[in-house]
């Protein structure tokens, strides 16, 4: 036997996760043009957003006012549009992980995962991240081109790219754990679509997907600040257009803390659920 029998080390576990993410990237790369084609819808969405927000900024500027001098919730028009490119990138790059996990549990494909020496959730996280990174690159390119043509660029430092990539990974991980936990409900219930639908819409509304949460009324903002959704959309998207190292560090700490809690909860759900697995038949 040439396989290792020792206790798994952190290095070996990371090597496995990286290998899974790499093969996911290679697999998705085969359909790069399909993926690019499917993101062209974003160009239409961005066009509509630009028109809507331009009208909003014009009305705020008043007759004779200059749109460029107006800031809403701390965002200029260009920043607002680039903020929306960032939120669209975060949301549209996410694989529907709840559906994948649900299908694996329901159809018995989970057998292929559980007979390999890796973590079930770790495998899915790597696939989610590998696919997400590729999609994010395409989405930023498509959305960025539309935004640059219609409202111009925003100030951006290349030095912040590594930090933003890390923020994207943490943001994806947060979204992954929520999606995975909903998918894991398939151990107990037949269909998880309803749960995810409700969660997703609440996340969109309260997370700042369509507008920055700072535009919310005071009372709602004070509620939203205690919820995790802004860490999943608003705060990382705002960081992308108004980068600040202190904000980045604070956000990273909050996201890491929440990831630890969610990771523990997801793993506990998995451990409980897998005992109930009823993959019956071939």
């Amino acid at each position: 036997m040439i396989a290792s029998r020792g206790a798994p080390s952190l290095t070996s576990e990371i090597t496995k996760l990286v290998a899974i993410a790499q093969i996911t990237l290679r697999s998705r790369f085969r359909y790069l043009w399909d993926m690019i084609g499917s993101t062209l819808f974003l160009a239409v969405v961005m066009f509509v957003f630009v028109r809507l927000w331009t009208v909003t900024y014009q009305s705020s500027a008043g007759a004779g006012g200059n749109v460029k001098d107006v800031a809403l919730a701390g965002f200029s028009l260009a920043q607002m549009i680039w903020y929306l490119v960032a939120t669209e990138t975060i949301i549209m790059s996410m694989t529907p992980i709840h559906r994948l996990i649900e299908r694996e549990i329901r159809d018995g494909d989970v057998a292929i995962r559980l007979n390999k020496p890796y973590s079930f959730l770790g495998f899915h996280w790597s696939v989610f991240l590998g696919e997400g990174l590729l999609k994010a690159c395409i989405l930023i390119a498509v959305g960025g081109v539309v935004a640059a043509i219609m409202v111009g660029g925003v100030s951006f430092s290349l030095g912040s790219v590594p930090a933003l990539v890390l923020t994207f990974i943490l943001t994806s991980t947060l979204n992954f754990f929520f999606g995975a936990m909903i998918g894991l409900l398939a151990f107990w219930t037949e269909d998880v679509t309803g749960f995810y639908f409700i969660f997703d819409r609440v996340k969109w509304l309260l997370g700042g997907f369509l507008m920055p949460i700072t535009l919310f009324p005071e009372w709602l903002l004070s509620v939203v600040e205690w919820l995790p959704f802004s860490l999943m959309i608003y705060q990382p998207a705002r960081l992308a257009v108004q980068f600040d190292w202190n904000v980045w560090a604070e956000l990273a700490m909050k996201q890491l803390g929440l990831i630890l809690v969610l990771g523990f909860l997801a793993q506990s759900m998995y451990r409980l659920g897998v005992r109930r697995l009823d993959v019956n038949g071939g």
């Binding site: 396989a3 496995k16 899974i20 390999k116 020496p117």
Partner: peptide
């Protein structure tokens, strides 16, 4: 061969 490569990592093969 790509799956073989992945499995070599998953099984931590020399």
């Amino acid at each position: 061969v790509d799956t073989f490569e992945l499995l070599s990592r998953v099984y931590e093969l020399n």
